[in-house]
């Protein structure tokens, strides 16, 4: 990192915090990624079972895929391969296993993209303007973080943290758990987030894949769940 880049880092980190904050208007709080059904069906009943479920999906399921998409989007910008971004965005958009995963991803990324354009405009965002599908959050934020020159070793774990923290908050509402239990769950996921981030930087899109079979089934079951607080 050059001295100039280092001087810009505090402002870049403030921006990353804004984009990943629960107050950023992408509607993340209305999506549970199938948790609502998993709670209803009795798979998740406590802080421990919530952490177990989220950690498994983070490290061996859909979270790992998002980490690879974020990293690839980041690198394609930081290494001057921006021309590869639309194809990556298309693959990431297609990599949604259920109709509600498509919904949560498309709605959040469209809202995120619209806000970024208005508040933190950057030419990289134009890459997504002419796509026939909504790009996923991981690709938009990976690319935009790279333009801010936030080191990947900070941006990627921060992104994954906001992803699981949002799901922990869904769990807190659904199970329900106390606020302290929610924070204990988030703290328990720190190490898995860092371990996954370290692994994801060397994984390629040829290694995308998930063993989170039950998470997908939970998301599908949620489509026909009778009483729902969440949209996924």
């Amino acid at each position: 990192m050059t001295a100039e880049q280092f001087a810009q880092l505090p402002q870049a980190l403030l921006r990353l915090q804004s984009w990943l904050s629960p107050s950023f208007p992408n509607g993340a709080y209305s999506y549970s990624h199938g948790l609502e059904w998993a709670v209803e069906a009795g798979h998740i009943t406590s802080r421990c079972s919530l952490v177990d479920w989220l950690e498994a999906d983070l490290c061996y399921g859909s979270g790992r895929n998002e980490a690879i998409f974020f990293k690839d989007a980041y690198r394609s910008v930081s290494e001057g391969r921006e021309a590869e971004l639309p194809q990556l965005a298309e693959l990431a958009a297609a990599f949604r296993g259920t109709s509600e995963f498509v919904l949560e991803s498309a709605q959040q990324s469209s809202a995120c993209l619209a806000t970024l354009r208005q508040v933190w405009p950057d030419r990289i965002l134009d890459v997504f303007a002419h796509m026939h599908c909504a790009p996923v959050l991981a690709v938009v934020l990976g690319a935009r973080s790279a333009r801010e020159r936030i080191p990947l070793c900070l941006a990627l774990p921060a992104f994954l943290h906001s992803y699981v923290a949002n799901l922990v908050m869904a769990g807190v509402r659904l199970i329900p758990l106390g606020q302290t239990d929610g924070q204990l769950a988030i703290a328990a996921l720190e190490h898995p987030i860092l371990a996954l981030s370290a692994k994801a930087v060397s994984a390629t899109i040829d290694e995308l894949g998930s063993a989170g079979f039950m998470v997908e089934l939970a998301s599908i079951a949620h489509e026909t769940q009778y009483t729902r607080l969440f949209r996924s």
Binding site: A38, D52, L54, D57, Y60, G61, A211, F213, M214
Partner: peptide, 8 residues
């Protein structure tokens, strides 16, 4: 980890 609830 396959036996975990979120996986198989």
């Amino acid at each position: 980890h396959l036996h975990r609830d979120a996986l198989l």
